[in-house]
């Protein structure tokens, strides 16, 4: 078979490169555990393209447990979770760990007649996982689940597990950030992390510095209301205090993103979201 990668369309080059580097590696197991959150990160993962979800599941990892996608249900589903604990696996957690009432604010399963709380599941898997990824702002920092007055006493995964964790924040996380981080783990090992344990490749850029509307800020041309094509700093833009590559990467395979849609950044990938990022919009 002639498989010159350049001859194949540009879209697939990235896919093929990943394939080339992955072909000799054994597919590692992965548990995607949803805790107290909105399940928005798994939906965001389904929005991935090149590689898409089918490629991710077929060629990159072996997903063992995820309650949104798995065919099995009830005890049979949870048994797959337990069986995976004895293998080498990556643990992805989305959602915060809610600790109120011994964790009963978030019950993920019932096994042998006993409730399994999110806390217990996170502890069980968290102690044995080879790598842990806290995906989304709730898992990374507590996020909206821990918004004041924090009725469910939710905490971030790192505050709960107290071990090395890779934080991949964002509300939701961008599919490229999560798949990129996992690809890095698989092929090149643990990616370079910043002080907050975020992969430098995705979180080293300050939104304000890379913003296409930066020149409007420098020239002091400010939008007075939403829908204007100028700098939204005076409306409460959190770009200056938030680090992600949104201005360059954009969202959902479009060239659009919140600021491109004439609305301010609300700092959804930043520690302290939402309490410290409010008011989101102030005229």
């Amino acid at each position: 078979m002639n498989s010159c990668p350049i001859a194949i369309s540009k879209d697939f080059i990235a896919k093929n490169l990943i394939k080339l580097s992955l072909q000799n590696t054994h597919k590692i197991n992965l548990i995607w555990l949803e805790l107290a959150g909105c399940s928005g990160n798994i939906i965001s993962l389904l929005n991935a393209d090149n590689p898409d979800i089918n490629y991710f599941l077929t060629n990159m990892i072996s997903l063992k447990y995820n309650n949104s996608l798995m065919a099995a249900e009830g005890e049979k589903a949870y048994r797959q979770f337990l069986e995976t604990l004895d293998t080498e696996f990556i643990l992805v957690i989305e959602g915060a760990v809610s600790t109120k009432a011994q964790g009963l604010y978030d019950v993920v399963a019932k096994y042998n007649g006993q409730y399994v709380t999110g806390m217990e599941a996170a502890k069980l898997a968290g102690e044995r996982a080879k790598h842990i990824l806290a995906v989304g702002t709730c898992a990374a920092y507590g996020g909206i689940s821990a918004a004041a007055p924090n009725p469910s006493e939710s905490v971030s995964v790192s505050a709960f597990l107290k071990r090395d964790i890779i934080n991949v924040p964002g509300c939701p996380v961008h599919p490229d950030w999560i798949i990129g981080t996992i690809a890095h783990l698989l092929v090149f090992g643990v990616p370079e992390l910043d002080q907050k344990n975020r992969p430098v490749i995705f979180y080293s850029i300050n939104i304000h510095d890379a913003c296409p509307r930066r020149s409007f800020f420098d020239q002091r041309v400010f939008a007075e209301k939403l829908g204007e094509p100028f700098c939204m700093f005076k409306l409460g833009c959190r770009g200056p205090v938030t680090n992600t590559d949104c201005p360059i990467r954009r969202w959902n395979d479009t060239d659009n993103w919140p600021i491109g849609d004439n609305t301010p950044c609300i700092g959804c990938a930043r520690e302290g979201f939402p309490d410290l990022m409010e008011p989101f919009i102030r005229y």
């Binding site: 395979d253 659009n256 849609d261």
Partner: peptide, 20 residues
């Protein structure tokens, strides 16, 4: 289903959790 969210993001910034 991905394309449906692509349409949404084209007009409303991003999906899930749009801004538009």
């Amino acid at each position: 289903s991905r394309l449906a969210h692509e349409m949404l993001a084209e007009l409303a910034g991003k999906a899930p959790h749009n801004h538009g």
